[in-house]
Design a protein around this nucleic acid. Structure first.
Lengths: 146, 146
DNA sequence: ATTGCTGCAAACCTTTTGCAAGAAT
DNA sequence: ATTCTTGCAAAAGGTTTGCAGCAAT
């Protein structure tokens, strides 16, 4: 096993997480996990489908969607909703909230702790527990504010 | 013209806003505006389509979508994205940010000022201007936290 | 008379689902 | 041997678009 900085998950650890939930270790699962680990930060399902396809043709889009759900159930990944567009996915070892620029689509990850104050005050005032990781905050990045 | 508490927009004022942008005052537009003023707080496009249809049959869904866009361009209404589901619309005279429970779908309107601190600190740290009205914060309402 | 708006139908995009065959356990 | 997963294809949900005719200006 490789050494890992921070909480980087290895493919092996992810496989273990999937199996411990009774899941099977299939070829498409392995490929998707590799793509998730190696690929960019916030891929959409479509980008993942393309990446998997380019690596090993013949895997059905529906399979990717089902795998993504499986990985989410295993608490390995998480998806967030980005305004109107498709959901984006990311590994949970990399947990954070997101700022999304609705002009250029840039996604900025920020520490969840940024919301601590807001979580508390909204919890108190509205009896509502916000989960800042679950939906992005929309706005404009510096370049697009111009 | 009627007196109006707070900043309630009258239908007439909305018509004026639409016309000042070069838009025409059509029958479907009038009906939709009435529905928006009279109806519930956070309708989806689908609910608006149903409400318009029940009032005056024969108006195409695509017309409603185009009208909503027109009203949005005229800065009369605004839509927000609510996690995976369809967008919801509301009159801008009623501006606020939203908390959405992703268990039961409840929508809670909260004053935008709630975000003042966060807007400032995120602006400073990430060079990013969040627009809290534009996307809901997802979480769980009290009943669903149980 | 001009041109914006409408209804209709079809297309679109993202995601989900039914099903029979195949693969991991 | 069991039953979880897959590929395929179709469906579903929400929204957008092309087009010819109608209506507001």
């Amino acid at each position: 096993m490789q050494t890992s900085r921070t909480h980087e998950l290895t493919a092996e650890q992810i496989y273990a997480a999937v199996r411990s939930g009774g899941g099977r270790l299939t070829v498409p699962l392995r490929i998707l996990v590799d793509v998730l680990i190696a690929g960019e930060d916030h891929p959409t399902a479509d980008e993942l489908i393309a990446a998997v396809e380019s690596r090993t043709p013949g895997i059905a889009p529906s399979t990717i969607y089902r795998l993504l759900q499986r990985l989410e159930d295993a608490e390995v990944i998480e998806h967030i909703h980005v305004g109107r567009g498709p959901a984006v996915y990311h590994l949970r070892h990399n947990e954070h909230a997101h700022l999304v620029c609705h002009e250029c689509g840039a996604i900025i990850g920020i520490p969840e702790a940024t919301f601590d104050g807001l979580v508390r005050s909204i919890g108190r005032k509205y009896d509502f527990t916000i989960e800042p990781r679950h939906a992005a905050l929309l706005g404009r990045c510096r370049r697009c504010v111009a």
